[in-house]
Design a protein around this nucleic acid. Structure first.
Lengths: 231, 231
DNA sequence: CGACCCGTTGACAGAATTCAATGTGTGTGG
DNA sequence: CCACACACATTGAATTCTGTCAACGGGTCG
């Protein structure tokens, strides 16, 4: 059982009525995953609703053709698997830890039960879903960009705005752990194309891959690229 | 004021407690639009929540670059503008009637009020949002396809499965009213590219543009194209 | 008739994919 | 510790796909 104190640290669950907190704390399970470990698998029936407590999670879908398409990268505080809950369908995607990760989860049944017992939380869930919708729309906008370079710029800028940490006078560090293949999948391009763009940008001091993610000395250059002005 | 009978015809609102029905009927407004008329505009503050009763609606966003990106085409029974409701932000997209269209709408305030008074409907709203999430995911999958032809095939097949009407032994009729420019925007390509593909397919008897939408004699051909087998 | 939107076609330049080869680091088994 | 497989990053060259530019036809509306 989770401690109430810990529960309250999760923005999504803070400020709930005490009874609801207790209800949740009793049912939420914490799990830890090493880098590369699966959190859930496409097709699984054992639907759970997850929240990332710490770390980085990749959610993806494998198409019939074998190609993997990445639906999103999730960080602390974000929810996973909201979709499968109400319809009790199989999980429609897989999730894997990109970094050492800790997630909180509860069964879909408990999730729905909570809704029925504590309608006050419905609003919160609805807000989460709306937020997710907006994220997906951003993703679609990114995929709608003209060239691959623009799409990569869009991707990096979006995550930088979301999770970037300012560095003392040296731009932003974006904690995002993607291989070139994963980046390629996200922007719908081939690995080689991504590599060529990233290495060009590396030489031009626009973006650097570092162990912690990406280092962007001057994010305005990327923003300019999105607005068509070449690179 | 809407008649309760009419209200019940909307799947989303059928089977509600009587009080909720009354509450809704009092606040829902029906509006009709001619082809080409705007239903709401990006940036508007007057947030309303809409449901398509009849017709076809295009929801799109205009990027700073002036390019229009289409977020979806909505048909009878589908909801629009769920996103802007809770956060009381401006409408993030515009909507236009592609065909003579009738929509039901209510203010965001009433929508939220309904949630607070009748928590039973929350589940329904959550289900709607989940559904929308799934649609957006499909859209992302489409944009993730390799070539433009594959993306168009994906687009057509998706809408055919959703709204296609079987024709006696002559394939499917998809009621989807898009210009070539709109198709181009949806699949993230240039008009000319779309035209070339569509006219090739027309000659090969794979898809025909008809006044009612698209006629697909044999949808399996399109499905094969999605699975890489050329066209 | 002229303005305008939509669909169409051709030629060409530029972008991205494909194919092939290579380097680098990591972990495993002998 | 070495050999080897394996995952990831990289590069070059050839080919294919798309975007761009330009021009044109048909239809509608005022």
């Amino acid at each position: 059982m989770l401690e109430i104190k810990e529960l309250r640290r999760i923005p999504r669950f803070s400020g709930l009525p005490e009874k609801a907190e207790l209800f949740l704390a009793e049912r939420i399970k914490r799990s830890s995953y090493k880098k590369g470990e699966m959190i859930f698998l496409e097709g699984e029936e054992n639907n759970r609703f997850h929240i990332v407590e710490e770390g980085e999670v990749k959610v993806y879908k494998t198409l019939e053709s074998g190609r993997e398409i990445i639906l999103g990268i999730f960080n602390a505080g974000e929810a996973l698997g909201e979709v499968a809950i109400l319809d009790a369908i199989d999980m429609p995607a897989s999730a894997v830890a990109q970094e050492p990760t800790s997630v909180l989860s509860m069964t879909s049944q408990d999730y729905i039960l909570m809704l029925e017992k504590y309608p006050e939380v419905a609003m919160r869930i609805i807000r989460d879903l709306s937020l997710r919708l907006r994220t997906l729309r951003k993703h679609i906008e990114m995929l709608g960009e003209n060239g691959i370079a623009t799409r990569i710029a869009h991707l990096l800028v979006t995550y930088a705005r979301q999770n970037g940490r300012q560095i003392n006078g040296d731009g932003v560090l974006v904690p995002l752990h993607l291989t070139r293949a994963e980046m390629a999948s996200m922007v719908s391009a081939r690995i080689e194309t991504v590599i060529r763009i990233m290495s060009r940008w590396h030489k031009k001091n626009i973006v650097h891959s570092v162990p912690e993610g990406f280092h962007i000395p001057n994010i305005q250059i990327l923003e300019a690229i999105i607005h068509q002005e070449e690179d």
